[in-house]
Design a protein around this nucleic acid. Structure first.
Lengths: 220, 220
DNA sequence: TACCTTAATATTGGATACAAGAGTCATTTG
DNA sequence: CAAATGACTCTTGTATCCAATATTAAGGTA
């Protein structure tokens, strides 16, 4: 689906990004350049460039002369990022709504249904992510979209950890919020959509605040 | 004053950042790796790393197999960034205020005075930037601070272009807003500070909206 | 034993050299 | 004359090699 970039560093960055987002690489994990180089059959140069790309994405942290790690967040940092999202994500949604196509809305509808019947954490997360990002995708706001994508990326691991922790618990409230959000989008009611989304992010943040265990284990 | 990093790529990035922020390099300007390498007496490797660092800062745009340019914004993009700032900068200020030291406040006071008596654009911009960023600097919010610093950086050139365009025009309103902001900070009135800052950014945005000329000339 | 010093090792940073892709411009062809 | 083709040039991308820094382990000293 994606253009098979001829540029090795980009390919490595894409692969690594996927590994981090999927959970195959955990926050705090050390990344050794030579290991990666060997894994991808390349030299360390494109690996280093790939790492820099992922720094831009907020997924990797580099320290001079020391090394690179998969970025990790403390509970406070993660909460902080949710607070930021509360303030700006509704703005992006508002800007996106008028430009959503019928096909977009149809897909959003499918996604809400699919989320409700999804059973495992991995697929729920995939659907949830697609639902939200698709809802924002029609916005002409490039910078805002980038910032929000970054925030989704950096917090992804902790969303997953939380989801796995409360697995089995009912997601009724979440599903309801998604329904309400979807309805507001269909009606083109920006006010309501903004308010609902703010509440949705807020509630999720409060859930995370109740579960410091999610953030244990890892260093910086 | 700064630790004289032994890492060349960082030094190059710092120097380039300074050049871009000071206006010595204009948005849209092409950056050739070899030129820079020669200029800094280094090879292209650290230059490339420096460019990636500046991509993270939002100051440089790179395209595979094509090259790098000093990032430039259209009027719409710049306005967009101001809208983002309106939503999140007050948040950072609120988080910072309780942690500001007496020395910080003293410095803020000096800066408001200095701004009022500054004559040239360059020094006003320096003071204005220090005033704002210092006011936010005590916040424990790393991510938010980073985002806002990026936004200040990417919009800096256009602030300067605007300032130079309206040079001679009275800055009374701006100075008043700074005074009001400073007062709110001294009183520890977060509500008022947030409101005042929001208004300040908003008003600046509207000024930019009135002056599309500021954004002419450059491509992408 | 605890702590500091010092040497060995592992890992990152950078220079040189080469390969590959994109862009340019003259030439050819309809 | 316009458009397409091709070679040439410029610039970026990568591999290999070497240098510098950080980390670890070992040994010695209080």
């Amino acid at each position: 689906m994606e253009a098979p970039t001829t540029v090795v560093s980009t390919r490595i960055a894409d692969a690594l990004r996927e590994q981090i987002l999927s959970g195959a690489m955990a926050p705090g994990e050390r990344i050794r350049q030579e290991e990666l180089a060997e894994e991808f059959g390349a030299s360390r140069i494109p690996v280093r460039e790939a790492l820099r790309i992922l720094v831009t994405d907020g997924l990797v942290t580099m320290v001079s002369n020391t090394g690179a790690w998969v970025s990790s967040l403390s509970q406070a940092e993660c909460i902080e990022q949710y607070l930021i999202r509360e303030r700006i994500e509704p703005l992006l949604l508002r800007e996106s709504m008028p430009h959503l196509t019928a096909a977009n809305v149809e897909r959003l509808s499918e996604l809400t249904a699919a989320m409700e019947s999804s059973t495992d954490v991995a697929s729920f997360m995939k659907l949830d992510r697609e639902f939200h990002l698709l809802a924002y995708s029609a916005a002409p706001n490039g910078t805002l979209a980038e910032i929000i994508h970054r925030l989704w990326n950096t917090t992804q691991h902790y969303r997953r950890a939380y989801s796995e922790m409360v697995r089995g618990t009912s997601l009724d409230v979440t599903h309801l919020e998604h329904r309400l959000l979807f309805d507001a989008i269909v009606r083109g009611d920006a006010e309501d959509a903004e308010r609902t989304l703010t509440g949705h992010i807020q509630r999720t943040r409060r859930e995370l605040e109740k579960h410091p265990e999610v953030f244990e284990v890892e260093g910086t």
